[in-house]
C-alpha cells in the first residue's frame, strides 16, 4: 500500500454518552490519507461530537482513535498540531485583523519569522482575503468572509487532517464556492479532509466517501456511487396514441412498470437506473414519447431509504 492510500485515521468502537443519551454509538471507520470524507446527517446526529473527539477536545466513553498509529487523547498535545478544526461557529478575535488572527494562531503552533509570514500570505490567498485592508477588523466582515477566516485559522499550521464542521452555514453562494475551491486546493496538497454537513449537495460534490450518521450511528459509509445504489430511481413517461398492445408490449419487457390513471402515462421504479433501457425500447418500437422525466436517486433518498425519515426533518 502506498503512503497516499494508507490509513491516516482509524476510529474504533467510539461511543459517547451524555448521561443516558447516546450521542455516538459504536462508531468505527477508517479514513485514508488524502481522502475527502463527508459526514452527512441531520442536526443532532453526532457529527460535531465525533469531530470534537477526533480533535482531542473531548473524550469518548468507549473506543479509540488513532492518527497514523498514535492514539488521540486530550492530554496528547503534540498530536493537535497535526489536526485542524474549523468549528461550526466563528472562532476568531474580532478585534484582531485577519492577518493578526492568522499570525497569532500560527505562533501558537510554533511558526515564526519568514515561514509564518509566507504561510499567512498563502492562507490569505487561498481563502480569498488577501486583498482585505490590513486595518479592517473581522467584526465588519460579511458572513462569507468570516467563514473563510474561520477556515484559514485551521490551515495556518498545515495540518495532516482538516476537519470542517458545517463550514458553509449561512454563507452566500459566492463564498460557498470560494470555500469549496479552497477545500479542493488544500486537498490537492495531500491534506485529508473530514467535512460535516447536512447539505447533501455539498457532500455529493466534494466527497470521495460519505458516512451517513443518524442518531449517533453510522448507517452507511461508502463512495457516492455505491451509496446511491441503496436508493431507487423512478422514471415517468407519457407516450402518444397509447394503444392496448403498447402497454402489453411494455409490460412484457418491463414487468415492474405501473400504469398511471392518466392514459398513456407510466412509471417505473428500480434500484438500477432504467432510463436507457426504456428509451431504447420505445425508440425501437417506434412509440412516440410525449414527455419523460427521471427522478434520480440522491443522498436524501438514500437517507430516506435507510431511516424512513427525511434528512432535514
Amino acid at each position: 500500500m502506498t503512503l497516499a492510500h494508507s490509513v491516516i485515521l482509524k476510529i474504533q468502537n467510539i461511543s459517547k454518552l451524555h448521561g443516558h443519551f447516546k450521542a455516538l454509538n459504536n462508531i468505527s471507520i477508517e479514513i485514508k490519507r488524502g481522502e475527502i470524507i463527508g459526514l452527512l446527517g441531520p442536526n443532532g446526529a453526532g457529527k460535531s461530537t465525533l469531530l470534537s473527539i477526533i480533535s482531542g477536545a473531548s473524550t469518548s466513553t468507549t473506543g479509540t482513535i488513532h492518527l497514523t498509529g498514535e492514539q488521540i487523547q486530550p492530554g496528547n498535545l503534540q498530536l493537535r498540531s497535526r489536526i485542524g478544526l474549523v468549528p461550526q461557529d466563528f472562532a476568531f478575535y474580532e478585534d484582531l485583523t485577519a492577518r493578526e488572527n492568522l499570525i497569532f494562531f500560527g505562533q501558537l503552533y510554533g511558526l515564526n519569522g519568514t515561514t509564518l509570514a509566507n504561510k499567512v500570505n498563502e492562507i490569505l490567498e487561498i481563502i480569498g482575503l488577501d486583498e482585505i485592508k490590513n486595518d479592517q477588523y473581522p467584526r465588519f466582515f460579511s458572513g462569507g468572509m468570516k467563514r473563510r477566516l474561520n477556515l484559514g485559522i485551521a490551515l495556518v499550521h498545515s495540518p495532516d487532517i482538516l476537519m470542517l464542521d458545517e463550514p458553509t452555514v449561512g454563507v452566500d453562494p459566492q463564498s460557498r464556492n470560494r470555500i469549496f475551491e479552497a477545500i479542493k486546493k488544500i486537498n490537492t496538497t495531500g491534506t485529508t479532509i473530514i467535512y460535516t454537513t447536512h447539505y447533501m449537495e455539498e457532500a455529493e460534490s466534494l466527497c470521495d466517501r460519505i458516512a451517513i450518521l443518524d442518531r449517533g450511528k453510522i448507517i452507511a459509509f461508502d463512495t457516492l456511487e455505491n451509496l446511491l445504489t441503496l436508493a431507487q430511481s423512478t422514471i415517468n413517461f407519457t407516450i402518444k396514441n397509447d394503444r392496448h398492445e403498447n402497454f402489453g408490449l411494455l409490460r412484457k419487457n418491463l414487468p415492474s412498470l405501473k400504469e398511471s390513471t392518466t392514459p398513456g402515462s407510466y412509471s417505473l421504479t428500480s434500484c438500477k437506473n432504467p432510463t436507457p433501457e426504456i428509451i431504447n425500447f420505445l425508440v425501437n418500437g417506434q412509440i412516440e414519447i410525449i414527455n419523460l422525466n427521471v427522478d434520480s436517486p440522491n443522498l436524501e433518498k438514500v437517507f430516506l431509504t435507510l431511516t424512513g425519515r427525511h434528512l432535514r426533518d
Binding site: 477536545a57 498535545l77 489536526i83 478544526l85 468549528p87 466563528f90 472562532a91 476568531f92 478575535y93 501558537l108
Partner: peptide, 14 residues
C-alpha cells in the same frame, strides 16, 4: 462565547 477559547484549547499550547 466567540469560540476562541475552544480554539486555544485545541492548540498544542499547555
Amino acid at each position: 462565547r466567540q469560540g476562541t477559547f475552544d480554539r486555544l484549547l485545541g492548540t498544542p499550547v499547555s
